[in-house]
Design a binder for these strands. Structure first.
Lengths: 185, 185
DNA sequence: CCGTTCATGTAAGGCGTTACATGATTCC
DNA sequence: GGAATCATGTAACGCCTTACATGAACGG
């Protein structure tokens, strides 16, 4: 799976500009995919050359002109090939977990701060995902596989948060052995 | 965080060969990092050139010769710089979740099979992670941030599995509306 | 005998990031 | 007045994947 496949999937639904695609990547896809403008625009040019998509330039006033892309039969075929290929293994790259692994080489305070940051960031993510779920359920169409990504996002983020919060308490206890419940510095 | 930083972190603990590093990436790091030989060996050459590590060639009989790498003061400094840099955002790339998102463009049977495959793969991962946790706890040193990665791996995989199993039942229900509990085909 | 482990590397190509470049409009 | 939104692109560079290349020893 690469950016081209994802773009084709989006364009199967309707036509989009590169800018709109980036917005989707930052919201609905944020949990399992990302691509920057530096990836999207060159991909669109290449796909147009390859005949998978066509470009229509739309002149706007009060706004910059925009290019709207539409999938072609060749693009539809290409997307079908992707959907028939074996599913690739999920990859995760976590600088945070790497630092937890190398925790012995960091100052205790640094580790504690990294965990606090992770909790803050995961909490934000969780809120966003829950908001997305609410809006998805507001239009009731019954169950769709589209909800699976959202559900997995929500449940795994909750699980992470729980582990992080418990770990933070344990670490603080180790760093400050004299501090007990109710104590204040 | 890139492969060089991870290698430096490993070598802070003790010296390793490229081959041994790859084993670590496949086991203890598998949940949040990966690097293939095609990444590791060129990285080691470059790091030697840059003076971050030194190479010692060891001749073995009954086994291929090997190169054991050791960190230098320059490498230690480089690693410290990494540990002082801001933590990068975690990235996930999931072909499986993308296909769930594009589920409407796949045959229902294909979606069901992908979910079954995901359940099988996650179950295997969970067993491996739990085995790793057991061996980590067998040497009791109390709490260490190293356990956080393991815990997060275990708890998020459990959360994923739960969502997947529930989703599978819902999908099968939709596909086969006449099948009820207790029915057999 | 066959698969796995041990062990290292190269080469080509694809993919992606980051920074640079531009600029009007609209909301606070 | 300043930040965000709308909107597209290039260029350089770095990183990583995949396939290729080699080959002995050992366990089942």
């Amino acid at each position: 799976m690469n950016t081209q496949h994802v773009i084709l999937g989006l364009l199967k639904k309707r036509s989009f500009t590169g800018y709109e695609m980036k917005n989707l990547f930052e919201t609905v896809f944020s949990f399992f995919f990302d691509a920057s403008f530096g990836t999207i625009y060159p991909a669109l040019s290449k796909m147009e050359q390859l005949g998978y998509i066509t470009k229509e330039s739309i002149v706007q006033d009060k706004r910059p002109n925009k290019n709207v892309y539409t999938i072609t039969p060749a693009g539809i075929k290409q997307f079908a090939e992707y959907m028939n290929s074996p599913v690739e293994k999920e990859t995760v790259r976590s600088d945070f977990l790497m630092r937890m692994f190398f925790g012995e080489f960091a100052q205790e305070e640094a580790s504690i701060n990294w965990i606090k940051e992770a909790i803050a960031s995961d909490s934000e993510d969780l809120e966003k995902l829950e908001a997305m779920k609410r809006s998805a359920l507001a239009i009731p169409i019954g169950f769709s596989t589209k909800l699976i990504g959202l559900e997995i996002g929500i449940e795994t983020t909750r699980a992470r948060l729980k582990v992080l919060q418990e770990s933070l308490l344990k670490l603080i206890d180790l760093t400050n052995p004299n501090m007990r419940q109710g104590d204040q510095q």
